[in-house]
Amino acid sequence: MRHADRPAGRRATRHGVAASVAPARMARRVAPLAAAMAVLSLGLTLALAPQPAAVTAPTAAGGTHAGATQTVNVAPDVAAPAVSQESYTATTGAQTLIESGTNADWAQLVLIYGDWPVTDENVTVMLQWMREENGPDNWWNRNNPLNNGHGSGGGSGLGSYDSLDTAAWYAADNLLKRSFYTDIVAALERGTSAHAVAQAIWASPWASSHYGNGAWWSTAPVPIIEAPASAW
């Protein structure tokens, strides 16, 4: 015998199950959407977060240097180092000239030993003087390029030295210690005019001919020629 309340009980049961299943289905549908929203929120948070400041470091040169990956800022009281511009005399020593070994090197060696400026004008007149005494092709003759009698054992200038280095020292020493060469020394100290030095040489007793008072003195360029290593 069927009871009249069974269908109603089953319907009530189904209704109760359906009522409990609906929120679960809804939760399963909403869960992926909530996860996506969380990821999007995290991305927006990172995008809006302040970025770290550029690395800054001082430099010796001062100012600001903009590079591909960083910007360098320097305090305004940092001074740039001075640039050293040394003269030829300060950077070229006797040994360097001896190793090079040309007539131009010997001319510079005399200037260094005399403590005169190694200028183009001074080197030019020294080369001209050497040519007048021995000629450029054999300028190292007797290791005495200027035919200097001082310390060479030949008062007439036909003596010789043990090396071109020694000869350069005696050439400078002779000019410095003789009063009748003071005009040559003064012109070399100025170092601004090869002609002024040449005029002082002509007027001095270095050569008895006085180089024809300049008539026999050539100002043509002097070829640069290296002496044998044995001469140094």
Score class of each variant (00 low, 15 high):
N122H: 06
N122Q: 07
V123D: 00
T124S: 11
V125N: 03
V125G: 02
M126E: 09
M126N: 10
L127F: 02
L127T: 01
L127G: 01
L127M: 11
Q128E: 12
Q128G: 03
Q128T: 05
W129F: 13
W129D: 00
W129A: 10
M130G: 04
R131V: 14
R131M: 08
R131G: 02
R131S: 10
E132H: 10
E132S: 13
E133C: 08
E133R: 13
E133G: 07
N134I: 02
N134E: 02
N134C: 10
G135D: 00
G135Y: 08
G135I: 04
D137L: 08
D137W: 05
N138H: 12
W139F: 03
W139H: 02
W139S: 00
W139K: 02
W140N: 04
R142W: 11
R142F: 09
N143I: 02
N143R: 15
N143L: 06
N143V: 03
N144M: 12
N144T: 11
P145W: 01
N147D: 15
N147K: 14
N147R: 14
N147G: 15
N148W: 09
G149L: 10
G149T: 10
G149M: 12
G151A: 10
G151K: 14
G151T: 08
S152V: 04
S152D: 00
G153N: 14
G153F: 12
G154C: 11
G154R: 15
G154H: 13
G154M: 09
G154I: 09
G155V: 12
G155N: 14
G155D: 11
G155R: 15
G155T: 14
S156M: 07
G157W: 09
G157K: 06
G157A: 09
L158P: 01
G159K: 13
S160A: 13
Y161E: 00
Y161L: 03
Y161M: 04
D162N: 15
D162E: 06
D162T: 15
L164R: 09
L164M: 07
D165G: 10
T166N: 05
A168P: 01
A168F: 06
W169V: 02
W169S: 06
W169Y: 14
Y170L: 02
Y170N: 07
Y170E: 00
Y170C: 02
Y170W: 10
A171N: 05
A171S: 13
A172W: 00
A172T: 03
D173M: 11
D173Q: 10
N174F: 14
N174G: 05
L175C: 03
L175N: 04
L175Q: 05
L175E: 01
L175A: 08
L175I: 09
L176A: 13
L176Y: 03
K177S: 07
K177Q: 09
K177H: 10
K177M: 04
S179V: 11
F180C: 02
F180W: 09
F180N: 13
Y181W: 03
Y181D: 00
Y181F: 13
